[in-house]
């Protein structure tokens, strides 16, 4: 297929297509976009993300958070402030904002503030080595040398995958245990091989 140009709109569509079309149950997908900092070094920063959430498992709502009451209050406060920032209103009475913020939602949100130097963290390693990093299993994540993998495990993830592409790295995370799939990696290569 012809290779499409990189833009924000198709990025979101590609992330959504990747997750919604997958056989496996992925919780989120993030595209870490490569750029250069003031010194000319390669940095991977937030490009875009698609949060699907956790499997319902018939309980009516997503898996609840293991966080403390104080932590939940903190998350809700941040979410209210972010909502105000986006909507432009000073205060929000939106019930949806006051719903419990799950661990994976929080992990996804915090990811928006992160960046990785070339070779640093799971995304940086994947990009620097031009090879995929697939970490599956609570122990593997907990014992990883990468802070992001350990953080992911604390927030309930069982699988984190980073697949390099021309302009960055596609990261997928899941609360399920998912083993390596060449089908997924091929899909990333097709969907994220941008022309520019």
């Amino acid at each position: 297929p012809p290779v499409a140009a990189f833009n924000q709109e198709t990025l979101q569509q590609r992330l959504q297509a990747l997750i919604e079309g997958a056989r496996e149950s992925w919780t989120y997908a993030i595209f870490w976009q490569s750029s250069y900092d003031y010194s000319g070094a390669t940095v991977l920063g937030w490009g875009d993300g698609y949060y699907k959430g956790e499997e319902d498992k018939g309980r009516g709502k997503s898996k609840s958070s293991a966080s403390s009451v104080a932590e939940q209050e903190h998350r809700k406060k941040v979410l209210r402030e972010l909502n105000s920032l986006i909507s432009g209103s000073a205060s929000s009475t939106d019930d949806a904002v006051d719903e419990e913020v799950t661990d994976t939602e929080w992990f996804f949100l915090v990811s928006m503030t992160q960046s990785f130097v070339n070779g640093g963290g799971l995304p940086g390693q994947a990009f620097f080595n031009s090879s995929s990093v697939w970490v599956a299993g609570t122990d593997s994540l907990a014992n990883s040398t990468c802070e992001r993998a350990r953080q992911g495990q604390i927030f309930g993830l069982q699988t984190i995958v980073c697949i390099p592409s021309e302009n960055g790295v596609v990261e997928l995370g899941s609360t399920e245990l998912i083993f390596q799939s060449s089908d997924l990696m091929n899909k990333v290569r097709v969907l994220f091989n941008f022309s520019n």
Binding site: D48, G49, Y51, S84, L85, A96, E105, M112, T113
Partner: peptide
């Protein structure tokens, strides 16, 4: 929140909107 760069606002807005949808459908 003020630290969230302008470029990430679109992702954040989308996340919040989809979250509302999920809550309403729950």
């Amino acid at each position: 929140p003020s630290a969230v760069p302008q470029a990430r606002k679109a992702s954040l807005a989308r996340f919040l909107e989809k979250r509302k949808e999920r809550m309403m459908n729950a």
